[in-house]
Amino acid sequence: HNLTITQGKLFFHYNPKLCLSEIHKMEEVSGTKGRQERNDIALKTNGDQASCENELLKFSYIRTSFDKILLRWEPYWPPDFRDLLGFMLFYKEAPYQNVTEFDGQDACGSNSWTVVDIDPPLRSNDPKSQNHPGWLMRGLKPWTQYAIFVKTLVTFSDERRTYGAKSDIIYVQTDATNPSVPLDPISVSNSSSQIILKWKPPSDPNGNITHYLVFWERQAEDSELFELDYCLKGLKLPSRTWSPPFESEDSQKHNQSEYEDSAGECCSCPKTDSQILKELEESSFRKTFEDYLHNVVFVPRKTSSGTGAEDPRPSRKRRSLGDVGNVTVAVPTVAAFPNTSSTSVPTSPEEHRPFEKVVNKESLVISGLRHFTGYRIELQACNQDTPEERCSVAAYVSARTMPEAKADDIVGPVTHEIFENNVVHLMWQEPKEPNGLIVLYEVSYRRYGDEELHLCVSRKHFALERGCRLRGLSPGNYSVRIRATSLAGNGSWTEPTYFYVTDYLDVPSNIA
Protein backbone atom coordinates (compact mmCIF):
# COMPACT_ATOMS: atom_id res chain seq x y z
CA HIS A 1 0.00 0.00 0.00
CA ASN A 2 1.14 3.52 -0.75
CA LEU A 3 1.27 5.87 2.23
CA THR A 4 1.71 9.61 1.81
CA ILE A 5 1.66 12.14 4.64
CA THR A 6 1.14 15.51 2.98
CA GLN A 7 1.27 17.51 6.19
CA GLY A 8 2.65 16.77 9.63
CA LYS A 9 5.65 14.79 10.72
CA LEU A 10 6.71 11.54 12.47
CA PHE A 11 7.20 11.13 16.19
CA PHE A 12 8.99 7.99 17.56
CA HIS A 13 9.93 7.50 21.20
CA TYR A 14 10.35 4.50 23.55
CA ASN A 15 10.45 1.72 20.97
CA PRO A 16 13.30 -0.45 22.33
CA LYS A 17 12.78 -3.23 19.77
CA LEU A 18 12.39 -0.92 16.74
CA CYS A 19 15.62 -0.24 14.88
CA LEU A 20 16.34 3.26 13.63
CA SER A 21 16.87 1.90 10.14
CA GLU A 22 13.21 0.88 10.02
CA ILE A 23 12.16 4.38 11.16
CA HIS A 24 14.27 5.94 8.43
CA LYS A 25 12.56 3.67 5.89
CA MET A 26 9.25 4.96 7.17
CA GLU A 27 10.43 8.51 6.51
CA GLU A 28 11.25 7.59 2.93
CA VAL A 29 7.98 5.86 2.05
CA SER A 30 5.77 8.44 3.76
CA GLY A 31 7.45 11.46 2.23
CA THR A 32 8.22 13.10 5.57
CA LYS A 33 11.97 13.03 5.36
CA GLY A 34 13.45 16.34 6.45
CA ARG A 35 10.38 17.53 8.36
CA GLN A 36 11.32 15.97 11.70
CA GLU A 37 13.23 17.93 14.23
CA ARG A 38 16.17 16.44 16.16
CA ASN A 39 14.09 15.35 19.16
CA ASP A 40 11.13 13.93 17.21
CA ILE A 41 12.96 10.64 16.66
CA ALA A 42 14.73 9.67 19.89
CA LEU A 43 18.13 8.10 19.33
CA LYS A 44 18.42 6.60 22.82
CA THR A 45 14.96 5.05 23.30
CA ASN A 46 14.43 3.54 19.85
CA GLY A 47 16.18 0.25 19.14
CA ASP A 48 18.21 0.34 22.33
CA GLN A 49 17.22 -3.30 23.11
CA ALA A 50 17.41 -4.61 19.56
CA SER A 51 20.23 -5.96 17.46
CA CYS A 52 20.04 -3.72 14.45
CA GLU A 53 22.24 -5.13 11.72
CA ASN A 54 23.32 -3.62 8.49
CA GLU A 55 25.85 -6.23 7.31
CA LEU A 56 25.40 -9.82 6.15
CA LEU A 57 27.13 -12.68 7.96
CA LYS A 58 28.01 -15.67 5.81
CA PHE A 59 28.63 -19.21 7.02
CA SER A 60 32.06 -20.48 6.04
CA TYR A 61 31.94 -24.09 7.29
CA ILE A 62 29.13 -26.57 7.98
CA ARG A 63 29.63 -30.17 9.06
CA THR A 64 26.96 -32.59 10.27
CA SER A 65 26.63 -35.86 12.14
CA PHE A 66 23.51 -37.68 13.28
CA ASP A 67 23.16 -35.57 16.46
CA LYS A 68 25.51 -32.61 15.95
CA ILE A 69 26.06 -29.68 13.60
CA LEU A 70 29.36 -27.78 13.53
CA LEU A 71 29.07 -24.22 12.25
CA ARG A 72 31.60 -21.50 11.50
CA TRP A 73 30.98 -18.08 10.00
CA GLU A 74 33.04 -15.21 8.71
CA PRO A 75 34.57 -12.95 11.37
CA TYR A 76 32.92 -9.64 12.09
CA TRP A 77 34.30 -6.73 14.11
CA PRO A 78 32.62 -3.31 14.49
CA PRO A 79 34.66 -0.10 14.13
CA ASP A 80 35.31 -0.25 17.84
CA PHE A 81 35.92 -3.97 18.42
CA ARG A 82 35.10 -3.51 22.11
CA ASP A 83 31.44 -3.00 21.16
CA LEU A 84 31.13 -6.66 20.05
CA LEU A 85 29.79 -8.61 23.04
CA GLY A 86 29.31 -11.85 21.13
CA PHE A 87 26.98 -13.69 18.79
CA MET A 88 23.49 -15.09 19.17
CA LEU A 89 22.81 -18.38 17.38
CA PHE A 90 19.15 -19.17 16.68
CA TYR A 91 17.93 -22.61 15.61
CA LYS A 92 14.81 -24.76 15.61
CA GLU A 93 13.34 -27.77 13.83
CA ALA A 94 11.98 -26.86 10.41
CA PRO A 95 10.24 -29.60 8.40
CA TYR A 96 9.66 -27.08 5.61
CA GLN A 97 11.87 -24.29 4.33
CA ASN A 98 9.40 -21.48 5.00
CA VAL A 99 10.64 -20.20 8.36
CA THR A 100 10.96 -16.51 9.23
CA GLU A 101 12.82 -14.87 12.06
CA PHE A 102 9.62 -13.77 13.75
CA ASP A 103 7.72 -17.08 13.76
CA GLY A 104 5.99 -17.74 17.06
CA GLN A 105 6.82 -14.36 18.54
CA ASP A 106 4.43 -12.99 21.14
CA ALA A 107 3.91 -9.66 22.88
CA CYS A 108 6.29 -10.62 25.68
CA GLY A 109 9.20 -11.03 23.30
CA SER A 110 9.47 -14.82 23.45
CA ASN A 111 9.54 -16.90 20.29
CA SER A 112 9.96 -20.46 19.06
CA TRP A 113 13.72 -20.29 18.52
CA THR A 114 16.39 -21.85 20.70
CA VAL A 115 19.04 -19.20 21.39
CA VAL A 116 22.71 -19.78 22.21
CA ASP A 117 24.97 -16.94 23.37
CA ILE A 118 28.49 -17.29 21.96
CA ASP A 119 31.55 -15.34 23.08
CA PRO A 120 33.55 -13.57 20.37
CA PRO A 121 36.84 -15.20 19.35
CA LEU A 122 40.22 -13.79 20.25
CA ARG A 123 40.99 -10.83 18.05
CA SER A 124 44.15 -11.01 15.98
CA ASN A 125 46.32 -8.01 15.24
CA ASP A 126 46.46 -9.07 11.62
CA PRO A 127 43.12 -8.23 9.94
CA LYS A 128 43.72 -10.92 7.29
CA SER A 129 44.07 -13.79 9.77
CA GLN A 130 41.09 -13.35 12.05
CA ASN A 131 39.66 -16.45 13.71
CA HIS A 132 36.30 -17.61 12.43
CA PRO A 133 33.74 -17.82 15.24
CA GLY A 134 31.63 -20.95 15.44
CA TRP A 135 29.58 -23.31 17.55
CA LEU A 136 29.00 -27.05 17.91
CA MET A 137 25.27 -27.76 18.22
CA ARG A 138 24.69 -30.90 20.30
CA GLY A 139 21.78 -33.10 21.27
CA LEU A 140 19.98 -32.80 17.95
CA LYS A 141 17.58 -35.30 16.45
CA PRO A 142 18.86 -37.57 13.68
CA TRP A 143 17.63 -37.03 10.13
CA THR A 144 15.95 -33.75 11.07
CA GLN A 145 16.08 -30.42 9.23
CA TYR A 146 16.94 -27.35 11.28
CA ALA A 147 16.57 -23.67 10.46
CA ILE A 148 19.60 -21.68 11.65
CA PHE A 149 20.74 -18.08 11.63
CA VAL A 150 23.22 -16.03 13.63
CA LYS A 151 23.51 -12.35 14.45
CA THR A 152 25.81 -10.12 16.45
CA LEU A 153 25.28 -8.71 19.91
CA VAL A 154 26.78 -5.22 20.26
CA THR A 155 26.80 -2.55 22.95
CA PHE A 156 24.97 0.74 22.91
CA SER A 157 26.78 3.39 20.86
CA ASP A 158 26.77 6.95 22.08
CA GLU A 159 27.12 8.18 18.54
CA ARG A 160 24.07 6.04 17.64
CA ARG A 161 25.85 4.56 14.71
CA THR A 162 23.75 1.57 13.72
CA TYR A 163 26.01 -1.35 13.03
CA GLY A 164 25.87 -5.10 13.42
CA ALA A 165 25.54 -8.16 11.22
CA LYS A 166 23.10 -11.00 10.69
CA SER A 167 23.07 -14.06 8.47
CA ASP A 168 20.32 -15.35 6.27
CA ILE A 169 18.31 -18.31 7.53
CA ILE A 170 19.91 -21.53 6.34
CA TYR A 171 18.54 -25.08 6.50
CA VAL A 172 20.76 -27.95 7.60
CA GLN A 173 19.72 -31.58 8.00
CA THR A 174 21.41 -33.94 10.43
CA ASP A 175 22.66 -37.30 9.22
CA ALA A 176 20.79 -40.57 9.46
CA THR A 177 21.65 -43.20 12.05
CA ASN A 178 20.40 -46.58 13.17
CA PRO A 179 16.62 -46.66 13.52
CA SER A 180 14.84 -47.77 16.66
CA VAL A 181 13.39 -51.27 16.86
CA PRO A 182 10.29 -52.18 14.84
CA LEU A 183 7.15 -51.95 16.95
CA ASP A 184 4.57 -54.56 17.92
CA PRO A 185 5.82 -57.64 16.04
CA ILE A 186 3.13 -60.33 15.90
CA SER A 187 3.68 -63.87 14.64
CA VAL A 188 1.03 -66.47 13.94
CA SER A 189 0.87 -69.78 12.12
CA ASN A 190 -1.72 -70.47 9.47
CA SER A 191 -0.49 -73.94 8.48
CA SER A 192 1.94 -76.63 9.52
CA SER A 193 4.72 -75.12 7.40
CA GLN A 194 4.14 -71.35 7.50
CA ILE A 195 4.38 -68.47 9.96
CA ILE A 196 2.94 -65.04 9.21
CA LEU A 197 4.86 -62.12 10.69
CA LYS A 198 3.49 -58.58 10.96
CA TRP A 199 4.94 -55.47 12.58
CA LYS A 200 4.78 -51.68 12.68
CA PRO A 201 7.49 -49.24 11.57
CA PRO A 202 9.95 -47.90 14.17
CA SER A 203 8.89 -44.89 16.19
CA ASP A 204 12.22 -43.24 15.31
CA PRO A 205 13.24 -44.24 11.77
CA ASN A 206 16.24 -41.84 11.92
CA GLY A 207 16.32 -41.92 8.14
CA ASN A 208 14.30 -43.40 5.29
CA ILE A 209 13.49 -47.04 6.04
CA THR A 210 14.72 -48.96 3.01
CA HIS A 211 14.08 -52.54 4.10
CA TYR A 212 13.66 -54.97 6.96
CA LEU A 213 15.71 -58.06 7.75
CA VAL A 214 13.90 -61.09 9.14
CA PHE A 215 15.91 -64.00 10.54
CA TRP A 216 14.38 -67.18 11.88
CA GLU A 217 15.89 -70.01 13.84
CA ARG A 218 14.46 -73.35 14.87
CA GLN A 219 14.31 -73.77 18.63
CA ALA A 220 15.14 -76.99 20.45
CA GLU A 221 12.52 -78.41 22.77
CA ASP A 222 13.07 -78.16 26.52
CA SER A 223 15.66 -80.61 27.80
CA GLU A 224 13.30 -81.86 30.51
CA LEU A 225 11.07 -83.35 27.81
CA PHE A 226 13.85 -85.80 27.00
CA GLU A 227 14.68 -86.62 30.62
CA LEU A 228 11.39 -86.97 32.50
CA ASP A 229 9.32 -90.15 32.57
CA TYR A 230 5.78 -89.00 31.90
CA CYS A 231 4.42 -92.44 32.68
CA LEU A 232 4.99 -91.81 36.39
CA LYS A 233 1.80 -91.25 38.33
CA GLY A 234 1.04 -87.61 39.04
CA LEU A 235 3.28 -86.22 36.30
CA LYS A 236 1.24 -84.08 33.96
CA LEU A 237 1.69 -84.61 30.25
CA PRO A 238 3.45 -81.68 28.54
CA SER A 239 1.67 -79.83 25.79
CA ARG A 240 2.52 -77.04 23.41
CA THR A 241 0.15 -74.82 21.48
CA TRP A 242 0.75 -73.24 18.13
CA SER A 243 0.37 -69.53 17.50
CA PRO A 244 -3.31 -68.72 16.83
CA PRO A 245 -4.31 -66.91 13.65
CA PHE A 246 -4.81 -63.16 13.49
CA GLU A 247 -8.07 -61.65 14.59
CA SER A 248 -10.22 -60.10 11.91
CA GLU A 249 -9.22 -56.71 10.65
CA ASP A 250 -12.37 -55.14 12.06
CA SER A 251 -11.55 -56.27 15.57
CA GLN A 252 -8.11 -54.73 15.31
CA LYS A 253 -9.29 -51.22 14.48
CA HIS A 254 -8.18 -48.66 17.01
CA ASN A 255 -10.48 -46.24 18.75
CA GLN A 256 -13.46 -48.58 18.45
CA SER A 257 -16.13 -49.29 21.02
CA GLU A 258 -15.95 -52.65 22.77
CA TYR A 259 -19.70 -53.02 22.69
CA GLU A 260 -21.70 -53.58 19.56
CA ASP A 261 -25.27 -52.64 19.01
CA SER A 262 -27.41 -55.73 18.66
CA ALA A 263 -29.34 -54.02 15.87
CA GLY A 264 -26.25 -53.73 13.67
CA GLU A 265 -23.01 -51.84 13.36
CA CYS A 266 -22.10 -49.20 15.89
CA CYS A 267 -19.96 -46.13 15.56
CA SER A 268 -16.66 -45.86 17.37
CA CYS A 269 -16.45 -43.85 20.55
CA PRO A 270 -13.97 -40.98 20.34
CA LYS A 271 -11.14 -41.01 22.83
CA THR A 272 -11.17 -38.46 25.61
CA ASP A 273 -8.34 -35.99 26.15
CA SER A 274 -7.18 -37.94 29.19
CA GLN A 275 -7.01 -41.18 27.18
CA ILE A 276 -5.02 -39.50 24.41
CA LEU A 277 -2.66 -37.92 26.96
CA LYS A 278 -2.18 -41.27 28.67
CA GLU A 279 -1.34 -42.96 25.36
CA LEU A 280 1.19 -40.24 24.55
CA GLU A 281 2.82 -40.66 27.97
CA GLU A 282 2.98 -44.44 27.51
CA SER A 283 4.49 -44.02 24.05
CA SER A 284 7.09 -41.58 25.38
CA PHE A 285 7.96 -43.91 28.24
CA ARG A 286 8.30 -46.86 25.88
CA LYS A 287 10.67 -44.94 23.61
CA THR A 288 12.77 -43.82 26.58
CA PHE A 289 12.89 -47.34 27.96
CA GLU A 290 13.88 -48.77 24.56
CA ASP A 291 16.69 -46.25 24.27
CA TYR A 292 17.87 -47.22 27.76
CA LEU A 293 17.91 -50.90 26.85
CA HIS A 294 19.79 -50.23 23.63
CA ASN A 295 22.44 -48.17 25.40
CA VAL A 296 22.87 -50.30 28.53
CA VAL A 297 21.88 -53.88 27.83
CA PHE A 298 23.06 -54.43 24.27
CA VAL A 299 26.82 -54.37 23.80
CA PRO A 300 28.01 -53.83 20.21
CA ARG A 301 30.11 -56.59 18.69
CA LYS A 302 33.77 -55.88 18.17
CA THR A 303 34.67 -55.69 14.53
CA SER A 304 37.85 -57.16 13.20
CA SER A 305 40.92 -54.96 13.47
CA GLY A 306 44.00 -54.79 11.34
CA THR A 307 45.69 -57.51 13.42
CA GLY A 308 43.98 -60.30 11.50
CA ALA A 309 41.47 -61.20 14.21
CA GLU A 310 38.27 -62.60 12.75
CA ASP A 311 34.83 -61.22 13.37
CA PRO A 312 33.01 -63.84 15.48
CA ARG A 313 29.69 -63.20 13.75
CA PRO A 314 28.57 -65.83 11.24
CA SER A 315 28.36 -64.53 7.72
CA ARG A 316 24.92 -63.98 6.28
CA LYS A 317 23.90 -66.29 3.49
CA ARG A 318 20.64 -66.01 1.60
CA ARG A 319 18.66 -69.21 1.28
CA SER A 320 15.58 -70.06 -0.64
CA LEU A 321 12.49 -70.58 1.45
CA GLY A 322 12.33 -74.19 0.32
CA ASP A 323 15.48 -75.00 2.27
CA VAL A 324 14.23 -73.64 5.57
CA GLY A 325 12.56 -76.83 6.74
CA ASN A 326 15.87 -78.55 7.47
CA VAL A 327 17.63 -75.71 9.17
CA THR A 328 18.87 -77.61 12.19
CA VAL A 329 21.06 -80.65 12.68
CA ALA A 330 19.15 -83.76 13.74
CA VAL A 331 20.79 -86.03 16.31
CA PRO A 332 19.36 -89.40 17.39
CA THR A 333 18.16 -89.64 20.98
CA VAL A 334 20.10 -92.85 21.63
CA ALA A 335 22.96 -93.62 19.28
CA ALA A 336 22.69 -97.40 19.70
CA PHE A 337 19.20 -97.58 18.22
CA PRO A 338 18.94 -96.07 14.75
CA ASN A 339 15.16 -96.46 14.52
CA THR A 340 14.46 -93.73 17.08
CA SER A 341 13.32 -90.38 15.71
CA SER A 342 15.59 -87.38 15.35
CA THR A 343 13.53 -84.92 17.37
CA SER A 344 16.37 -83.62 19.51
CA VAL A 345 17.41 -80.42 17.80
CA PRO A 346 20.69 -78.95 19.05
CA THR A 347 21.50 -76.12 16.69
CA SER A 348 25.06 -75.72 15.54
CA PRO A 349 26.38 -72.25 16.40
CA GLU A 350 28.33 -72.16 13.13
CA GLU A 351 25.24 -72.71 11.02
CA HIS A 352 24.03 -69.86 8.85
CA ARG A 353 20.59 -68.66 9.79
CA PRO A 354 18.11 -68.24 6.96
CA PHE A 355 16.83 -64.72 6.45
CA GLU A 356 14.66 -62.70 4.14
CA LYS A 357 14.92 -59.08 3.03
CA VAL A 358 11.55 -57.31 3.09
CA VAL A 359 11.06 -54.12 1.06
CA ASN A 360 8.10 -51.71 1.04
CA LYS A 361 5.89 -53.66 3.42
CA GLU A 362 5.56 -54.61 7.09
CA SER A 363 4.69 -58.30 6.80
CA LEU A 364 6.23 -61.57 5.69
CA VAL A 365 5.07 -65.14 5.19
CA ILE A 366 7.85 -67.54 6.20
CA SER A 367 7.37 -70.84 4.38
CA GLY A 368 9.06 -74.21 4.26
CA LEU A 369 9.10 -74.68 8.04
CA ARG A 370 8.87 -77.91 10.01
CA HIS A 371 5.48 -78.77 11.42
CA PHE A 372 4.71 -78.08 15.09
CA THR A 373 8.12 -76.59 15.74
CA GLY A 374 9.00 -73.49 17.71
CA TYR A 375 10.90 -70.73 15.92
CA ARG A 376 12.57 -67.62 17.24
CA ILE A 377 12.19 -64.76 14.79
CA GLU A 378 14.48 -61.74 14.75
CA LEU A 379 13.35 -58.52 13.08
CA GLN A 380 15.52 -55.51 12.22
CA ALA A 381 14.69 -52.22 10.51
CA CYS A 382 17.30 -50.74 8.17
CA ASN A 383 17.54 -47.28 6.62
CA GLN A 384 20.60 -47.91 4.47
CA ASP A 385 21.55 -50.77 2.19
CA THR A 386 24.90 -49.75 0.73
CA PRO A 387 27.82 -49.41 1.21
CA GLU A 388 26.94 -51.26 4.42
CA GLU A 389 23.67 -51.96 6.14
CA ARG A 390 22.60 -49.64 8.93
CA CYS A 391 20.03 -51.50 10.98
CA SER A 392 18.32 -51.32 14.33
CA VAL A 393 18.66 -53.52 17.35
CA ALA A 394 16.61 -56.66 16.80
CA ALA A 395 13.07 -57.19 18.02
CA TYR A 396 12.34 -60.81 18.92
CA VAL A 397 9.16 -62.84 18.71
CA SER A 398 8.47 -66.56 18.93
CA ALA A 399 5.96 -68.72 17.13
CA ARG A 400 5.14 -72.40 16.67
CA THR A 401 3.79 -73.90 13.47
CA MET A 402 0.56 -75.87 13.44
CA PRO A 403 0.62 -79.67 13.86
CA GLU A 404 0.66 -81.95 10.86
CA ALA A 405 -2.20 -84.40 10.55
CA LYS A 406 -1.15 -88.05 10.96
CA ALA A 407 2.44 -87.07 11.76
CA ASP A 408 2.16 -88.89 15.11
CA ASP A 409 0.80 -92.11 13.60
CA ILE A 410 2.98 -95.20 13.91
CA VAL A 411 3.96 -96.34 10.44
CA GLY A 412 4.51 -99.99 9.67
CA PRO A 413 3.42 -103.18 11.40
CA VAL A 414 3.67 -103.91 15.10
CA THR A 415 5.76 -107.07 15.42
CA HIS A 416 6.14 -109.37 18.38
CA GLU A 417 8.45 -112.03 19.71
CA ILE A 418 7.42 -114.56 22.36
CA PHE A 419 9.94 -115.67 24.98
CA GLU A 420 9.83 -118.11 27.83
CA ASN A 421 7.84 -117.41 30.97
CA ASN A 422 5.07 -115.93 28.82
CA VAL A 423 6.99 -112.75 27.97
CA VAL A 424 6.07 -111.01 24.72
CA HIS A 425 8.36 -108.39 23.20
CA LEU A 426 6.38 -105.87 21.12
CA MET A 427 8.31 -103.79 18.57
CA TRP A 428 7.33 -100.87 16.34
CA GLN A 429 8.84 -97.93 14.52
CA GLU A 430 8.68 -94.45 16.05
CA PRO A 431 7.08 -91.79 13.80
CA LYS A 432 9.83 -90.28 11.68
CA GLU A 433 8.60 -86.67 11.78
CA PRO A 434 6.35 -86.31 14.83
CA ASN A 435 4.75 -83.07 15.98
CA GLY A 436 7.49 -81.81 18.24
CA LEU A 437 8.60 -85.05 19.83
CA ILE A 438 7.04 -88.26 21.14
CA VAL A 439 6.82 -88.22 24.94
CA LEU A 440 5.21 -91.64 25.50
CA TYR A 441 3.36 -94.57 23.93
CA GLU A 442 0.09 -96.12 24.99
CA VAL A 443 -0.18 -99.91 24.59
CA SER A 444 -3.70 -101.36 24.80
CA TYR A 445 -3.94 -105.16 24.90
CA ARG A 446 -6.55 -107.72 25.89
CA ARG A 447 -6.99 -111.44 26.01
CA TYR A 448 -10.02 -112.80 24.24
CA GLY A 449 -12.96 -112.59 26.64
CA ASP A 450 -11.17 -110.32 29.17
CA GLU A 451 -11.16 -106.57 29.75
CA GLU A 452 -8.73 -104.33 27.92
CA LEU A 453 -5.52 -103.44 29.77
CA HIS A 454 -3.29 -100.40 29.24
CA LEU A 455 0.45 -99.98 29.53
CA CYS A 456 2.37 -96.68 29.39
CA VAL A 457 5.78 -96.79 27.69
CA SER A 458 8.05 -93.83 28.29
CA ARG A 459 10.37 -92.35 25.71
CA LYS A 460 13.47 -93.69 27.46
CA HIS A 461 11.97 -97.14 27.89
CA PHE A 462 11.10 -97.34 24.21
CA ALA A 463 14.64 -96.33 23.24
CA LEU A 464 16.10 -99.14 25.38
CA GLU A 465 13.69 -101.89 24.33
CA ARG A 466 12.87 -100.80 20.79
CA GLY A 467 9.35 -101.22 22.05
CA CYS A 468 8.15 -102.85 25.28
CA ARG A 469 7.75 -106.25 26.95
CA LEU A 470 4.51 -107.69 28.25
CA ARG A 471 5.17 -110.01 31.18
CA GLY A 472 3.11 -112.52 33.12
CA LEU A 473 0.58 -113.10 30.38
CA SER A 474 -1.94 -115.85 30.80
CA PRO A 475 -2.23 -118.36 27.96
CA GLY A 476 -4.69 -117.38 25.25
CA ASN A 477 -5.34 -115.27 22.18
CA TYR A 478 -4.35 -111.59 22.46
CA SER A 479 -4.88 -108.44 20.45
CA VAL A 480 -2.78 -105.30 20.87
CA ARG A 481 -3.01 -101.69 19.64
CA ILE A 482 -0.49 -98.89 20.09
CA ARG A 483 -0.61 -95.13 19.71
CA ALA A 484 1.95 -92.39 20.22
CA THR A 485 1.49 -89.20 22.22
CA SER A 486 3.42 -86.12 21.11
CA LEU A 487 3.50 -82.51 22.26
CA ALA A 488 0.50 -81.90 20.02
CA GLY A 489 -1.59 -84.72 21.50
CA ASN A 490 -2.42 -88.30 20.65
CA GLY A 491 -1.85 -89.99 17.34
CA SER A 492 -4.07 -92.68 15.84
CA TRP A 493 -4.27 -96.24 17.11
CA THR A 494 -2.55 -98.86 15.02
CA GLU A 495 -4.46 -101.71 13.49
CA PRO A 496 -4.83 -104.61 15.99
CA THR A 497 -2.04 -107.15 16.03
CA TYR A 498 -2.82 -110.69 17.20
CA PHE A 499 -0.66 -113.30 18.90
CA TYR A 500 -1.16 -116.47 20.91
CA VAL A 501 0.50 -117.24 24.23
CA THR A 502 0.83 -120.90 25.16
CA ASP A 503 1.17 -122.37 28.63
CA TYR A 504 4.91 -122.74 29.00
CA LEU A 505 4.35 -125.70 31.42
CA ASP A 506 2.75 -127.68 28.56
CA VAL A 507 5.68 -127.21 26.21
CA PRO A 508 6.88 -130.72 25.10
CA SER A 509 10.33 -131.70 26.30
CA ASN A 510 13.10 -133.01 24.07
CA ILE A 511 14.43 -135.26 26.83
CA ALA A 512 13.74 -138.97 26.17
Rank of each mutant, 00 (worst) to 15 (best):
I377A: 04
D323I: 12
I410A: 09
P338S: 10
E442M: 05
P338D: 08
H454S: 04
N421E: 14
P496A: 12
T386K: 07
N422A: 14
Y504T: 01
I482T: 01
K271M: 10
P508I: 12
V358K: 15
S315G: 14
E221V: 15
T343E: 07
Q380L: 13
D323E: 07
E281M: 05
K278E: 03
N422C: 06
V424P: 03
I410T: 03
L235F: 06
W242G: 04
Q256T: 08
S305Y: 09
D503Y: 15
V443G: 00
Y259K: 12
Y448P: 12
T288Q: 10
S304Y: 07
C468A: 07
W216P: 07
P238K: 03
A407T: 09
N255W: 14
A335D: 15
S243N: 14
G368P: 08
G322K: 12
F285T: 03
T288C: 11
P332T: 08
V414Q: 04
S251E: 08
N339W: 10
M427F: 13
I438H: 01
I482D: 00
L228K: 09
R469V: 08
L437C: 12
G234D: 04
H425W: 08
D229L: 03
G374Q: 07
P349Y: 11
S274Y: 08
A336K: 12
L235V: 11
R301M: 05
Y504F: 11
L277S: 07
Y478T: 01
P387D: 00
L232M: 13
L225I: 07
E433Q: 11
E389R: 11
Y375H: 11
G207Q: 01
E260N: 15
I418E: 12
E362K: 09
I209L: 14
L379M: 07
T241Q: 13
A309N: 11
Q275A: 07
T272R: 08
V424L: 11
T333Q: 12
Y396M: 08
E451P: 15
E356T: 14
V480I: 15
R313F: 15
F355N: 11
R446A: 11
C267G: 03
I418F: 12
Y230C: 11
C269H: 06
P403F: 03
S268Q: 12
E282S: 04
R286A: 05
L437T: 01
G489T: 12
P238W: 10
F355G: 11
T497E: 08
K460Y: 06
M402L: 03
D503Q: 13
F337Q: 11
A335M: 13
T401V: 11
N421P: 13
V324M: 12
L235G: 05
N477M: 14
G412T: 06
F215D: 12
R471N: 08
I377L: 13
V397N: 15
E465Q: 14
I377Y: 13
T401A: 07
V329G: 12
K432E: 07
Q429E: 02
N360R: 12
L237E: 15
S492C: 07
F246P: 11
G374E: 08
I366F: 15
S344T: 11
P205H: 06
G467M: 06
S251T: 11
V329D: 15
Y375C: 12
L235W: 11
E378W: 07
L321A: 10
C269D: 03
G476K: 02
Q219P: 15
A405V: 09
H425Q: 06
I377H: 03
E465N: 11
S305I: 11
A336D: 11
P300W: 14
H294E: 00
C456V: 05
S344I: 05
V414A: 06
F372A: 07
A399Y: 06
M427W: 05
H254M: 08
V329K: 10
N295P: 02
G264W: 09
T401N: 03
S320L: 12
